[in-house]
Each structure stands twice: as C-alpha cells, then as structure tokens.
Amino acid sequence: MTDLPLDPIAIDVGDLLQRTVASLYSHLVTRPTGRAVRMAIETQLAEAGGRSLSLIDLSEVTILDFSCADEVVAKLLQKHQGDAGLEAIFVFRGVHEPHRDQIQVVLERQSLAVVAETGPGRFELLGARSPDEDLAWRYLEDQGFLGRDEAHALCGASDPVRAFEALSERGLAFRSPVTGRYHALSRLVEHLT
C-alpha cells in the first residue's frame, strides 16, 4: 500500500473566474464573485471525491480584494476544517506580493493558516501560527518528509511532537494514515503544473 493515499489536483482560479462567474469579469473582486468561485472550487472537490489535496492557482488573478480573499481562501479553509476532521487540504500557488497582504489579513482574522507558493519554487506559511508550528513547518519543508518517530528531533520547539500534529490537523502538512509519516505539502504538489 502506498504511503500517500492522495491524488493531488490543480484548480486554476483565473480559469474558473472566466468560466463560472462571468466572462466579463477579469478580477477577483466583490463578495458574490468570491462566493461563486469558491462554490466552483467546491464542485471540483466534490467531483474528485474523498480526501483531497488541491493546488489552488491564483497566478492569473491580477486584482484580489479583501472580500474575495475572505470568500476564496478563508471560507474555503474554514469549511474544510470542521469538527469531522480535514476533508481537503489546500496549497495556494501564485500568491504574488500584491495578493499577499489580503490573504494574510483574512487568515489572521480567522486564526487560519495556509501553505502558499509566493514565487517559483518558494513556499511560505501565511496566516496565524505559533512559533512551534512555524519552526516545525520550516523543518519539514527542508526535509520533505519526516517519520513520526523523528518528530521529537526538532530543536528549539517546546513540544515538537505536538507541533507536527498541529500542522497536520490544520492542513499545513500531510500525515500518512498508513505510516504516520509527515509530508511537506510543497513536495506533494510540485509535479502539478
């Protein structure tokens, strides 16, 4: 059995914006537009079925306002981080400097965090996180993956084991249900173009 029972999918928000909201709208602004795009993403997730890892690509989006950042990023994460556990994990691609502030603000307001590709091959953790989570995420990002017995080796964290568990629970790392190994999300989506 594979260590990774996930088949990552890529969702191009620029394409969704053009196809699902209105061909006239080229920017991700206004709450109804954001809501419509989020619903289109959720439809694709439902079609994928089961637990999923999705790469949400914002590369083609020029303008992203706070209302849309709240609908497309924060509310999407909130909806899939319910009490029943994570149904879906997300990585956001194309989070360029002009989008960064809007996403950071809406995530912090809702105590959420997300893994974002902010430049080619450069991944960052955006939003609210503890120092231990930040340390654990950087370590995992360097290593690519980590055996569950190796978590305690993280230096500088007050509770390293708990820090990796928290990353997994918050959708900031993937923990294999088969081996218990932690995987950096950046490595799991790197093959998606």
């Binding site: 602004v29 303008i63 992203l64 306002d65 706070f66 209302s67 400097e97 002009p98 989008h99 502030d101």
Partner: peptide
C-alpha cells in the same frame, strides 16, 4: 508599480460599502 493593485482594492472595498 504594484500600487495599482492596492489602489484598485481600495476602490473595490469603498464601492462595495455602497452595495452591501
């Protein structure tokens, strides 16, 4: 050059204030 995005976001949010 990137300030056009922040400027557009300001306009978007103040106009949405009317709609919402």
């Amino acid at each position: 050059g990137t300030s056009v995005v922040q400027f557009s976001v300001i306009l978007s949010e103040v106009c949405q204030n009317i709609v919402e």
